[in-house]
Design a protein around this nucleic acid. Structure first.
Lengths: 249, 249
DNA sequence: AAGCTTCATTTGCATATGCAAATAAAAAAG
DNA sequence: CTTTTTTATTTGCATATGCAAATGAAGCTT
């Protein structure tokens, strides 16, 4: 446990002590200050640093563990957990994974890439100033060689500058972003639309046939990361989720 | 606090004590033994009945409160909470509410009702024996007089026998079921399909135009309650959800 | 009757203490 | 050098204790 780690934990004095501790650590994790794998100070250390009893520290950490933010093991200590890869209903965050779970071979092809100022309608998707620089990508994903989904994506360069040096030759942008950025907020919208002629041609379906449109935007603390539009040929796809009245099962 | 209430709480001896208590109470709530509004015995009473310390009982109850299953107030005590009405992304459980939230006037019309043995394809939707009796309903929901969604629903009579005496003249079946049954499991599937000619006519759209199809099935402890197929005209509807990497926001 | 005060109940929070379980690392044994 | 044993660290669980905060109910005042 390095001193830098524990010194980052500071309380704000608002509300119950155990909750201040919980929030302090949660925020360090969500802000990326403590990336996944970072070891969290042991209860004793936090206890001394914060002047709280062990039970109180324990209560905060136990709750974070229940929420899945940290992993705790006796003797080895506590580490920051990796965010769960997939997430119920609509969290097909990784298309390669989605395809491989269907037992099909995955491949993809980049159709177009442009870097520069965001055109008006693209900027609107993000509620972003038009002066912002973005990378605009169009690509097609295949399952067993057949078109699976058409992706149209905009990435906010200011949030992830290293994107300009990435060719996406090895990893499609969705997965690359999952590895190279941290997101704290996402929004999904799902709707049904008819395929435009150019889209239909790429997906090898009839123009006008029904497609499922998933639009997703992600942010890190109110700073936009990416907006993506995924067009799935209608009949071949369904999104399924299970849950109970009190939450996902 | 009546004796009947507290006597229902029994432990199974498996795992930590606080968790046995938590599960015991949770199960009473989920099974419907303690319906919403029932008052939960105070910590002192549980403490005596179960032979645990107050802190341990408190830990179990505090966790249930965080999960939203119970409501706690100082002095007035603890009561079983009502299940949350709507639920993130796809939990448009009540169509009247959905329409009214859009600021439109809601109405509906029953197109057809048949009671009897489930036809083969209907039974399949439920993974149900063909001998099971079901009520089969078709209805159309309107928003400001315009067709909003087409509903096709099957209800398992054995689970809710009182359905045979219900005309659904006042309340559409979805809402009636919410009030008259308890569900512990639901499954959603969402897909895009082209409207069949008869469906298109009812919804006043072009045959073949894209529609969003939501299929939902609900159970109470593995006993089927209902299966429903909701067909929304494509362009006019989208389902939106927000969440963070660790769960819904 | 309406408002105020007091009282009693119930939950919420924090501490101190002790022991148990898991297990990484060190020590001992072969 | 490898295997076994011991030790020490860290988390997990439960208890006992004390006080604080909220608030329903009862009693009191005017």
């Amino acid at each position: 446990m390095s001193a830098t780690q524990i010194d980052a934990v500071t309380l704000d004095g608002a509300g119950p002590l155990y909750d201040q501790i919980r929030r302090a650590i949660r925020d360090l994790i969500l802000a990326g200050t403590w990336p996944p794998g970072t070891s969290v100070p042991p209860e004793h250390a936090l206890m001394e640093k914060l002047g709280a009893s062990r039970m109180t520290v324990h209560r905060a950490l136990a709750q974070l563990a229940r929420e899945g933010l940290i992993l705790r093991r006796r003797r080895s200590g506590t580490v920051v957990a990796s965010p769960p890869a997939s997430h119920a209903m609509l969290d097909i965050l990784s298309i390669p994974e989605e395809v491989e779970e269907l037992g099909q071979a995955y491949s993809y092809r980049i159709l177009q890439r442009r870097d520069g100022k965001a055109p008006r309608e693209v900027a609107a998707r993000f509620e972003l100033g038009r002066s912002a620089n973005v990378t605009h990508l169009t690509l097609l994903h295949f399952a067993d060689g057949a078109p699976h989904v058409l992706e149209d994506r905009v990435i906010h360069i200011a949030t992830i500058p290293q994107i300009v040096d990435e060719s996406f030759a090895q990893t499609p942008p969705g997965d690359w972003l999952l590895q190279n950025s941290l997101w704290t907020q996402a929004e999904h919208a799902i709707s049904a639309i008819a395929a435009e002629p150019d889209e239909a041609e790429l997906l090898k379906i009839e123009a006008g046939s029904p497609c499922l449109l998933v639009e997703r935007r992600t942010w890190n603390q109110s700073e936009p990361i990416t907006a993506v539009r995924l067009l799935y040929p209608g009949g071949r796809h369904r999104f399924v989720g299970r849950f109970g009245p009190y939450g996902a099962v």
